Amino acid sequence: MTLQRRILILVTAVVLLSAVGVIAVVRASSRADEKDRARPGGPEVTRGEVSLTPADGAPRIVLRNMAWGPHRDELVTVPAASPGGPRTASGVSCLRFHSAAGTGVCLQAEKGGVQEQYRAVVLDAHLKVVSSHPLAGIPTRARVSPGGHLAAWTVFVGGDSYAGTNFSTRTSLLDLRTGRYDASLEDFTIVKDGKAYRNADVNFWGVTFAADEQTFYATLATGGQTYLVRGDLTARTVTTLRENLECPSLSPDGTRLVFKKRVPGLSADAPWRLYALDLATMKETPLAEQRSVDDQVVWKDDRTVVYALPGDFGADLYALPADGTGTPAPLMTSALAPAFLGS
């Protein structure tokens, strides 16, 4: 056998072995993908049309899908009457999301580049981008006002957890009526104990809006303490109301806030319990959830709040009465950042 023939046989063998390897990888990837699509016990997710103003008027939930598969992290929708049913996926991916009155805010990771970048996009009722704003850090909170005219979001610019003290946040506000964009709530005047207050360690997070599209509530952290603040968009002020209150969420009727509170004696990694605050009397009521909730709850209606806890695929949603009665009830698996629309 000549040297040339031996080389030809060797090259042919290498090519065949490479082809076999590629086929094996493709088949394994395909099997893994099929497994993700049909993971036992997981929700059924298919691509379809998603709207922030349901055409049939029936109440719906739009949320971030956490189920493994080709639609993970996409906004999906389900009827509010059957939250465990099949999900319709939009093709729009969000890390954090909220919506009201046909307006959505979606905090996204941008593709490409060496270092991951993030942006906030305002969406119309058909999930088309109205405006886009670069983010200075990791997305953590998002809210739209009840009338759909205001949006707010919070990112971590240092650290990645509220549990400790070594973190820094930036909270931004956008008025869709005027286009005014406040890149940092720290530019507002802080009124603390009746006096103007400034400190380099100030952080804000967890905005929630009132129905007047003017008033908002949020968390202020400074001097090792957290405070509930009430904000005024026209006056551009935030005024402290109460200590030890984080991630407030205002009820649809505007009378109560549900928030997370640090409770002495709990683990430093899981320090919170959920409470309700009556804004007329300033009376606190502990809710019937004994686990630590690191989330800004959303209101399903005037009686029930919904929040996320860690789950098998990232997060699951639970529902709980907002008056301190009852017990937590599982609402949806593999789900995060819900918005209840049309209810």
Rank of each mutant, 00 (worst) to 15 (best):
M1C: 15
T2V: 11
L3S: 14
R6E: 07
L8H: 09
V14A: 14
V14T: 13
L17D: 07
S18G: 15
V20R: 14
V25W: 02
R31M: 12
R31Y: 10
D33P: 04
D36I: 05
D36T: 12
V45K: 08
T46W: 12
V50Q: 04
L52R: 02
P54F: 08
P59T: 10
P59A: 07
R64G: 14
M66W: 06
P70L: 13
P70I: 12
R72N: 11
L75K: 13
A80D: 06
G85T: 13
P86S: 12
R87T: 05
A89H: 10
G91F: 06
V92E: 03
L95P: 05
R96G: 09
H98N: 15
H98A: 15
T103R: 12
L107I: 15
Q108P: 15
A109K: 03
A109F: 03
K111G: 15
G112W: 01
G113E: 14
Q115N: 02
A120F: 05
L123P: 13
K128T: 08
V129N: 05
V130E: 08
P139F: 08
A142K: 04
V155L: 01
D160M: 01
Y162F: 13
T165F: 03
N166K: 12
F167M: 14
T171I: 00
S172I: 11
A183E: 05
T189F: 00
G194W: 03
Y197D: 06
Y197W: 05
R198G: 02
N203C: 02
W205M: 10
G206P: 05
D212Y: 09
E213V: 02
E213G: 02
Q214W: 01
T215N: 08
T215F: 00
A218N: 01
A218G: 00
G223V: 02
L233M: 11
R236M: 04
T237F: 04
V238K: 02
T239H: 11
L241I: 06
N244D: 13
L245C: 08
S249P: 08
L250Y: 02
L250S: 01
S251T: 11
G254Y: 01
L257H: 02
L257W: 02
K261W: 06
V263M: 03
G265V: 04
G265L: 04
A268M: 03
Y275H: 13
A276W: 09
L277D: 08
D278V: 03
L279M: 11
E284W: 09
T285P: 10
R291E: 12
D294H: 04
D294C: 01
D294Q: 08
D295Y: 00
V297C: 10
D302Q: 14
D302W: 08
R303K: 15
L309H: 07
P310Q: 10
D316M: 04
L317C: 15
Y318D: 09
A319L: 06
D323I: 11
G324Y: 06
P328M: 07
P330E: 11
L331M: 13
T333I: 04
A335I: 10
L336W: 00
L341S: 02
L341G: 03
